[in-house]
């Protein structure tokens, strides 16, 4: 049996253990909530993690499609990027999968073929972590963009409304502007 088949068979157990290890990164009370509340709208964080790791695991065993797996990683990392984690803390959960898998294989004697497969899989997990780091950075950059845009949107519109910025207008608007301006002068 190939390693992937073995892991597929142990999927539920492995995912449960991965999930628990991720929840351990939260305070006890919070972890309890994240684990037990199954409604995806009442508990979006817990459910995003739960679904996300399931999807990542599945994709890893099947095709390992980068785009797909990035989407799954995003659903978890986008959340952790705004929680109180440092960059390493936000993405370290990917590496948990390695020890989860090793522990899960503890009762199996690994043949050289299985070892090879495991080595490949582990390096794939390393790649996941690198992708995860990129996603984390994108999320953080997005946050800074949003901050900057909020300020810009507010002040710019205000200045514009107060006729304090001169815009390059297109021809039609230009006439409008002059017409209004004239009206102001005349009235």
């Amino acid at each position: 049996m190939s390693l992937k088949n073995i892991l597929s068979e142990k999927k539920d157990e492995l995912l449960a253990s991965w999930f628990d290890r991720i929840l351990d990164t939260y305070p006890v009370e919070t972890a309890k909530f994240l684990k037990n509340q199954k409604d995806r709208f009442a508990n979006p964080v817990g459910q995003a993690i739960h679904k996300g790791i399931g999807d990542i695991f599945q994709e890893l065993l099947q095709n390992g499609d980068i785009e797909k797996v990035s989407g799954f990683l995003d659903s978890i990392i986008r959340v952790r990027a705004v929680q109180e984690f440092s960059a390493s803390q936000a993405v370290a959960f990917i590496f948990f999968l390695k020890s989860v898998i090793r522990d899960g294989l503890a009762d199996i004697s690994l043949t050289p073929e299985l070892y090879d497969e495991l080595a490949t899989l582990e390096s794939q997990i390393d790649s996941l972590a690198l992708i995860a780091f990129d996603i984390f950075m994108q999320c953080r950059e997005k946050l800074y963009d949003i901050k900057a845009n909020e300020m810009k949107n507010m002040t710019y519109r205000l200045l514009q409304r107060a006729n304090m910025v001169t815009e390059i207008k297109d021809a039609e608007k230009e006439t409008n502007f002059i017409a209004i301006h004239k009206k102001e002068v005349n009235s």
Binding site: P27, V28, E29, F93, F96
Partner: peptide
């Protein structure tokens, strides 16, 4: 280890 990295210092839960 990654697990150790994650022992972040959150505010303690109400039971503590």
């Amino acid at each position: 280890k990654p697990e150790e990295l994650l022992q972040i210092n959150y505010n303690p839960p109400p039971t503590e």
